[in-house]
Design a protein around this nucleic acid. Structure first.
Lengths: 195, 195, 195, 195
DNA sequence: TATGAATGAGTATTCATTCAT
DNA sequence: GATGAATGAATACTCATTCAT
């Protein structure tokens, strides 16, 4: 029998998984805390031992989802090996866009709110925030970004990623102003020019 | 006594105004349909003659707000007279950002969803969609955009505006990753380079 | 152009038809007066010029339906020509049961409340109530009913018809206690014996 | 402090009792779920832990009422001791009719829908359904019913009881076509002949 | 007669949250 | 820690009915 702390983690996990499934299936508002609890096979009261309310579990979820997608996107970019900085970022953007196009339900949940993990203590932080650092690593050795601070690079990528996610939502969910395929060349040109 | 149709328009107007005020004051969820109706001085049932539910009136509202802000932004850009294309767009972006910084409550309502009026029939539409057309006009006679289609210009501006709004929300409301003032140089550099 | 009285009848008719359709489709409670009016292509206020409320139109409708079915049932019995009294009544019952089995929606609307047109002034009424009189006619010349008053005959048939309708509802709608086919022999035996 | 399950039964009971009283007093439609809950001294939400809606509690109620009346009617018949089958059934019918005449409010609630408890597993069921079985018992040893199956006897009685209840509703509530006293001889003659 | 915009009382239903066990 | 029965506040929405035109 596992120790108590592990059992708690298992339950927290089960709640998060249940919420993820239900939020995707029916959306946030049509999912009640009771639904989440019963799908996770715990009592309704137990939910409150782990999360203060529905928003809290949503936030936890959005963080996870964002992190997961962005990590996969980084890995895809890293797999390219030694290529120019812009190509790396384009790979990240492309992975992201394709992911969101494929997983429409996720896009519907996340909406325009994909978020980077908080990057407090960016420069000289003892404990490196892996995701952010991996992205900044892309710029290392590229002449065109040499003059910029890490912060600037990070902000620039943040803005461009925001743009991509926002346009995914517009094009894929709201079908405006066009398909994501027709929007892509514009987005990629913007990215390429602005790096 | 005014014509019936006019009276209906007045009532619709009153409902929209009431909803706008209340959504800004207390937020969407803390505003009930009853609140909206009574602030508009109509019966609760009357609300449903004009809007099917709270979301419907929100959508109508978002359209209006977006249009108003973007029109003001265009006017600000037009006031610059004969300047390069990029400067025009920067003026639009700056107006937008300053507006949202000032009107935090509006930003909180709109979130990342500022939207262009639908641009159906962009090229060669009989009846010009003023807002979109005004923006495209900015590009006329500028050598750097001569080769591009109207559609491409419109999409490019759409994406850049989306980026600005999205970053306003992150920086001003979520206070992440930095202040909007620190983010501005990055955004403006991206805009300038990508035009 | 028809005269005013005729036009009013046409509208009344249209309302009854609309109500009939809607009551069958969605049931009484799920049909609003607004629904009836709009299906009849008249304004909501117009409904009240013809019927005082939903119950009033339902009652008018139930009367019509009952009358129509019972008249058809009588005709079916009359078509048998010279046969014993019991056979006539059995024919009525059988027509009725088969009709209700076929038109489940009608049965669902009428429930157990099929009703004879009111038989006020049964004996020696100036203006013969056709339906009731036709039924009583069945007994003329049959030795087994010679000794009974018209009233008694009418009441007896009323009770037996009630029984049949009630059992149709139980068997067909509530599926209790058995199918109507299995119930029929019992019902017909009761009818035959009690005449 | 009583066991949890017992407390739940008590609450269910209280809700049924409250609904019974209120439905009789004001009728079904004029009774709100809030009324039922507050008369039962529970919160409105608690109602929904026990019944899905007003119809559900009505159905539960009709079952109970039917059972109670029919059981009393059976007891009245059993009290006659050794008498012919038809006399037993007449006693049941008479008890029923007198009950409904006396308790007009109950009749108004039940309308024509008095129902036997479901008789699944009629022949050879391990666990005897007391009410149905008691009625069938009446036929034992009576030469005139010896040849019939239990099912047939049960169906016959069901049909006759339906007839009586339906005519009670017509005569007592709708006052049509005559008083129940004038209808009784016809009903009893039908019953006597058909057994 | 006919209309249909306006009314607003009336009610079902949901659900986050608590707390005794 | 875990449960799930109980709560009751909170609200959306319907619809019969009226009445000015």
């Amino acid at each position: 029998m596992a120790n108590v702390q592990e059992k708690k983690q298992v339950k927290r996990q089960a709640l998060l998984d249940a919420a993820y499934d239900l939020f995707l299936e029916r959306g946030m508002t049509k999912t009640s805390i009771g639904d989440i609890a019963s799908r996770a096979n715990v009592a309704k009261g137990t939910f409150y031992l782990y999360f203060s309310d529905k928003d809290a579990i949503l936030r936890a979820l959005l963080g996870r989802i964002s992190q997961k997608i962005l990590e996969e996107a980084c890995s895809a970019a890293e797999a390219l090996g030694e290529v120019p900085f812009a190509d790396k970022i384009l790979a990240v953007a492309d992975y992201l866009i394709e992911y969101l196009r494929r997983e429409t339900l996720v896009l519907r949940l996340v909406q325009r709110n994909l978020e980077w993990p908080s990057a407090t203590g960016l420069e000289g932080a003892d404990e490196p925030l892996h995701l952010v650092r991996r992205v900044i690593e892309f710029g290392k050795g590229c002449p065109e970004v040499e003059g910029r601070s890490e912060k600037e690079i990070y902000y620039r990528i943040t803005a461009l990623v925001s743009m991509c996610v926002s346009m995914c939502y517009s094009c894929i969910i709201e079908k405006r102003p066009d398909t994501i395929d027709n929007m892509k060349p514009v987005l990629y040109d913007i990215i390429r020019r602005s790096l």
